[in-house]
Simulated assay, not measured.
Amino acid sequence: MVRILVIEDEEILRSNIVDILEAEGFEVDQADNGRLGVQLAQSRSPDLVICDVMMPELDGHSVLSQLRQDPTTALASFIFLTAKATAADMRQGMNLGADDYLSKPFLRTELLEAIATRLSKRQSILKLQQQIEKLEQSNYLKDEFMSTASEELRGPLTNISMAVEMLRKSPNVQKMQRYIELMRSECTRELRLINNLFDLQRLEAGSRSLRPEVINLQQRLPTMIETYRQQAQTERQLLQFTLPPYISSMVTDVTDLEQILGELLDNACRYTSPRGKIVLEVSRSPMPVGLGEPPCFMTTFMVSNQAELAPEDVAHLTALFQDTEPATSNRRGLGLKLTHKLVKRLRGDLQVTSDAGWTFFVVQLPNYADPS
């Protein structure tokens, strides 16, 4: 509801204005002097102020000057009421930031037309301000994203460069094999990061189409996670997988699902110590639906690993998943940002928690009509 503050020392006129505005559905505050008017404006943040010019204690020009200097009231529209609207008086008011003048006595229609014009202009200014802030935020996010991408891409290249140098110097065949394996692993990681960059760009541009299909989870998931089972074995980790037999299939984009689980499992492998455990658990639960709607089931994929995150890292990732924080130089930023966007476009939810030496990434995806 639009809030209007009326500052007028003449009681009958003030009362008439308040009655007119309340009859039109406005929320109205009133003050009989400028000092009280400023206090009310600062505490109530009106959308528009109607103020007499000539008043005791604090005149209208002083009221306007104070309100324009206060960030909480600077954008409020301001209409002066005056019995002597000379060119000099109007110029003084306009220089201070007044939006309009009404000469006493005025008609009800003149008052309402002036208010409608000022509120419309104010709405346009607020909308423009929101667009500017959104553009500034977009530019900030792009800068942060490029900073993240540069840092993440630099890591594998640095390791490859180091391995090449050590390979050149090492006469030991066993060590040479280890350096070759390191180079292979880092090349794979670099390609993954580059693919993530392209995928993020396509998602942002809306050029990656969504292709939902019925997939057999009992057949697809074991094959899907085999790469990460081998990755875990290489790091001397244990990857456990639980898929109840009653969860046979679901309708979703198989490419998105594979990428989501792949990113989470790869992340778990990279941040779990040797001999640590990594667990992928799948479960399903019904969701409440409206009358006449088809039944809906929520399929939950939980990837947990033996590595506890610091509270500030959990807060960072939570903000990342809520789109309130960009992917900064935190090493987990880029892949998990992509994961979140994929989950979001599948109308799902991604949450992270960490406790008692474990970290849990929980993905919930809706599946409309029971596919089982």
Rank of each mutant, 00 (worst) to 15 (best):
R192M: 11
L193K: 05
L193G: 02
I194W: 08
D199S: 05
D199C: 02
R202M: 09
L203C: 05
L203D: 02
A205V: 03
S207G: 14
L210Q: 15
L210M: 14
R211V: 15
P212K: 13
V214H: 09
V214R: 07
I215A: 08
N216I: 08
N216Q: 10
Q219I: 08
Q219D: 07
R220S: 10
T223I: 13
T223W: 11
M224N: 04
I225T: 02
E226R: 13
T227C: 15
Y228D: 08
Y228R: 04
Y228P: 00
R229A: 09
Q230E: 13
R236N: 12
R236D: 12
Q237M: 01
Q237N: 04
Q237I: 00
L239M: 07
L239Y: 01
F241Y: 08
I247K: 02
S249H: 11
M250S: 07
T252A: 06
T252N: 04
T252L: 09
T255H: 08
L257C: 05
L257H: 05
L257W: 08
Q259G: 01
G262Q: 03
G262Y: 02
E263L: 10
L264P: 01
L265P: 00
A268T: 02
A268I: 04
A268K: 02
C269M: 08
R270P: 04
P274Y: 09
R275G: 06
R275V: 04
